[in-house]
């Protein structure tokens, strides 16, 4: 018997879960409050598209969330990468910055929610800062490890070929660390995405994360599920995009 290709297995598994969902909701085994059926979901989506949710349409909520994710992720990943590269090159700087990075990395973002509000207020600044702070340590650690894992012979070789320390950094160190930097970026994006709801708790009234949270409060699970699907699917789409970019840019990595 020939085994199925992997994409078919993926398709079948999705199909299986979907049909279980349809069956369970159709047969009324679970109340729509806990698990809305396909029809509820479809109606909920229509309502969200036509009338929006609490003053904003679904695309507006999504747009605001993506803008926050994009800004927080890009600034956090860039700053983290720059810091990580510097930490990888200079042991002294690493010794200086590492305790803060290591403290920040596992810290639940909700822990500093109130502080961010006190320091930066309730506007976009504190929301984006929270996402920035979520992305930064991940990107920094990835870049630092990327630099540390460069074979020392490669650096010696560059110097022997006549590259100045500055040239070694830009022409050898940075590109050598690129695969790990990009892997770190994908990791950071995942964490930023996971932090979105925490960020949108700050004086919310917009964003998919806030919508899910608010709809969940009174078990408005049709809206919550639509929100979860939207956030999940866009997350996968962005991750795929990054993966595609990664494969194009660092096609040489690991070979």
């Amino acid at each position: 018997m020939r085994s199925l290709p992997n994409w078919a297995v993926t398709g079948l598994s999705i199909l299986l879960v979907l049909s279980a969902w349809v069956a369970v909701t159709r047969l009324g085994l679970v109340r729509d409050l806990f698990l809305p059926g396909p029809r509820d979901l479809w109606l909920g989506l229509q309502e969200l598209l036509d009338e929006g949710y609490k003053g904003r349409t679904l695309p507006e909520h999504l747009g605001m969330s993506l803008l926050r994710v994009g800004t927080g992720f890009l600034t956090g990943a860039l700053a983290g990468t720059a810091l990580g590269l510097a930490m990888g090159v200079s042991r002294k700087l690493d010794a200086m910055a590492a305790p803060f990075i290591e403290f920040l990395r596992p810290l639940p973002q909700l822990a500093y929610l109130v502080l961010l509000i006190v320091w930066l207020g309730i506007g976009e600044g504190s929301k984006i800062s929270m996402l920035f702070l979520a992305a930064l340590p991940v990107a920094a650690v990835a870049a630092r490890d990327g630099v540390r894992n460069i074979p020392p012979e490669r650096l010696r070789m560059a110097a022997a070929l006549g590259a100045s320390p500055r040239q070694v950094f830009w022409h050898v160190v940075a590109p050598s660390a690129l695969p790990e930097i990009l892997t770190g970026a994908r990791l950071a994006l995942g964490i930023v995405y996971a932090t979105l709801i925490a960020a949108e708790i700050i004086a919310g009234s917009s964003g998919i994360g806030w919508m899910i949270l608010d709809a969940g409060r009174f078990l408005r699970s049709d809206y919550a599920f639509v929100g979860i699907l939207v956030i999940g699917l866009t997350g996968i789409a962005i991750d795929r995009l990054l993966l595609w970019l990664e494969r194009r840019i660092v096609h040489w990595a690991g070979r």
Binding site: P151, E153, R154, R156, M157, A158, A160, L161, V172, P175, S176, L178, V250, W252, A253, R255
Partner: peptide, 12 residues
Amino acid sequence: GVVFQQPTLFPW
């Protein structure tokens, strides 16, 4: 000029 046992090329 230096040549090591491993080619130590720049893979990118």
